[in-house]
Amino acid sequence: MERKFKEALAHRRSYYALSNKSLVSNEEIEEIVKFAVKNIPSAFNSQSTRVVLLLGDQHTKLWNIVKDTLREIVSAEAFKSTENKIDKSFASGYGTVLFFEERMIVEGLQKSFPTYQDRFPVWSQHTSAMHQLAVWTMLEDAGFGASLQHYNPLIDEAVTKEWQLPETWELIAQMPFGAPLQEPGAKEFNPIEERVRIFK
């Protein structure tokens, strides 16, 4: 679609009705992820963000892990609606992007710059957030609908084990995406005057 940057940001929304169809090739999806990881800034150029792209059966496997994990801690009655939401809004999609932060890099910066040691975990989250927004916006610009989910830390151990990831990778968020089946509802905005102050 290649919208202008401001148009792409304004168009990005949370989509909760997804199908497992794709309008672009897997290679184009991979390029979106790689582009974001390469070009999004990070504190002290730490490049601490790690991303895992799950497609096909691997995507399905993730959401089965989520359901299996929640089944153990949610009542049987409550799990029915939880399972329905996961199946129709997340597992039904084409893929999932997992966002991680490499703790070893953050801890290394804390040791190297003790004056800012309490800030590096916060800045690491900022870095992850920028990656999330970039990938989300580019996926939507490619025709996908997506949302951002946070089943961590409940699924962390199972995810690390299933995909044999380094234990120092901290899971931050999960982004299921797919062809949107319906448009999201109207978005309400608080008055911009309450959120921005300008001094000239």
Rank of each mutant, 00 (worst) to 15 (best):
K67D: 14
M175L: 02
F79M: 14
D87A: 10
V24H: 12
K187V: 01
P114Y: 03
T168M: 13
Q110V: 01
F177A: 02
S42P: 04
K38C: 04
R119P: 01
A43N: 12
N45C: 06
N84T: 09
V122Q: 15
K88P: 01
S128I: 08
D57H: 03
A78L: 13
F177P: 02
F189S: 12
I32F: 05
T115C: 04
P114H: 12
R195A: 08
M104Q: 07
A43P: 09
S128K: 00
H11N: 04
Y15C: 05
R197P: 11
D141Y: 15
A142T: 04
S75Y: 03
S22Y: 12
E77H: 08
R12W: 08
G108I: 05
G108P: 06
G178R: 00
W169Y: 08
S19G: 13
T82A: 04
I29Q: 03
S112T: 12
N45L: 02
Y94Q: 03
A78N: 15
E31N: 11
K80F: 11
L98V: 09
K21L: 06
Y15V: 11
A129K: 03
L154K: 15
K187I: 03
I172S: 02
A158S: 11
G145P: 04
V51E: 04
N84Q: 12
L148C: 07
A142R: 13
Q149E: 14
G93I: 00
G185F: 14
S124D: 10
P180Q: 03
L165A: 09
N45Q: 12
R195S: 09
R3M: 07
S25C: 05
V122F: 12
Q47C: 00
L139A: 14
Y16S: 09
K88I: 06
L109Q: 07
N39D: 10
L70E: 14
M138Q: 11
I192A: 09
G185Y: 11
A186V: 15
S147I: 10
H11V: 00
A91I: 02
S81E: 10
P166G: 08
S19R: 11
R195G: 13
G145Q: 09
I73Y: 08
N39T: 08
L98P: 01
Q149M: 10
P114I: 04
W136V: 06
P153F: 10
R3H: 05
S124E: 07
V37D: 13
D141I: 11
V33H: 03
F199Q: 14
F90Q: 15
F44M: 03
I198C: 05
L133M: 05
K4E: 09
E183V: 14
L154P: 02
N39M: 05
N26Q: 07
P121H: 12
L98D: 00
F120E: 02
Q132V: 04
M138A: 14
V106W: 00
I73A: 15
